[in-house]
Amino acid sequence: MARLNINGKIHNIDVEPDTPLLWAIREQIGLTGTKYGCGVAACGACTVHVDGVPTRSCSLPVSSFTEKQKIVTIEGLSKTVTHPIQQAWLELDVPQCGYCQSGQIMAAAALLVKHPEPTDAQINEEMSNICRCGTYNRIRAGVKLAAKNAKAKKSNTKAQRA
């Protein structure tokens, strides 16, 4: 048995404790946006947020989580595709096949929190997810666009408050 807090909801799931979080999310909870790519923490397709930290869910068993940890999957990132990263991805048509993109978006969203104005070196460092379609350059542009948009929005709100 495991109790997991996923996208703001507590789920009681009846699985073997060594089941990786990825497979609990996909097969027990039924959220299939988080993808299986390697199962060995090498590709990033399975990236989710655990208390805001990008985490490769294929390589951590459910037994290592408590319900206090907030797990967010791609389905929970925003209600209607409004996260700045999602918006930038839409604007630049980043995805090709799209299979890696849930993981890319989750990694990029966490990157923006850590580095609101990321440099190329920081993007290289934090975005180590694999994309076999080769969308890397658009991902880089997307991260920068999202950062720019988020900054503009922030200064707008500040200006309005002032």
């Binding site: 996909r26 299939t32 946006g33 791609i74 995805p95």
Partner: peptide, 15 residues
């Protein structure tokens, strides 16, 4: 076909 690739809603064969 971009939007459904941004929120996990696109269903691939594996899903």
């Amino acid at each position: 076909d971009t939007k459904m690739k941004l929120d996990g809603s696109q269903i691939y064969s594996i899903d």
